[in-house]
Amino acid sequence: MDGVTLRFGGLMALAGLDLRVEEGEILGLIGPNGAGTTSAFNLVTGVYAPGEGDIRLAGQSTVGLLPHELASRGIARTFQNIRLFGSLSVLDNVRVAVASRQHGGFWNALWRGRAFHAGERAAEVEAMDLLSLFGLERQSATLASGLPYGDQRRLELARAPALRPRLLLLDAPAAGMNPTEKAALAELIRFIRQKFQLAVLLVEHDMPVVMGLCERIVVLDHGVKIAEGTPAQVRVHPQVIEAYLGAEPAHA
């Protein structure tokens, strides 16, 4: 992301933001409410188009691509307010994402030839594998809307790698979790990164999670980058403490 600016009318949501996620790293993007973290997310996933600047994925500009095109090019995300396909089974939630990479579609489904059945089986196997990685294989037949909160979060995390992404964006994944669950989540995110060889961009308001998990952190305030560096550097950065963490330094 290079010099990206996003305006809503007269409001400058992001002003000339430069952001770079290296391959395989976990980058934290933090900032107080309204700092522009979610806007940055929406730019990367194609929900908004930047007014100025360029967004590139592996060297290629992604400006102007629609969310589903970005998803199929390797950008997966989860949402702050969990977004699942409530009336579909847990298995189908992952399976549709797997199938979005397959070709054929409508006519194949209508004709039901050999290629169709092979594709269906492959998608099911891959989706079941993902579910068992995330410990959801026993619930594969339940409706997504019937899952308890923690499982819904995990299902959303299980759906993302189905796209075979290079970059995974996590929007406040620890929201509403207790300390034990947060520790498990951090473990899970590390595991995903390692297992699927992807980079993670994490927006999170829970400082212990961010500090413990991220290799690098970028701090935004009022749409401007005010600090960047390792957790240790960011934690003692005077501007960060002033803008975001208050008078006291954060406890990691």
Binding site: T45, V47, L66, P67, H68, A71, S72, A76, R77, F79, R83, L84, F85, G86, S87, L88, V96, A97, S100, R101, R159, A162, L163
Partner: peptide
């Protein structure tokens, strides 16, 4: 069920 999530899942 969820158009935004569908798009984010490559649909």
């Amino acid at each position: 069920d969820n158009e935004v999530a569908a798009a984010a899942s490559g649909i």
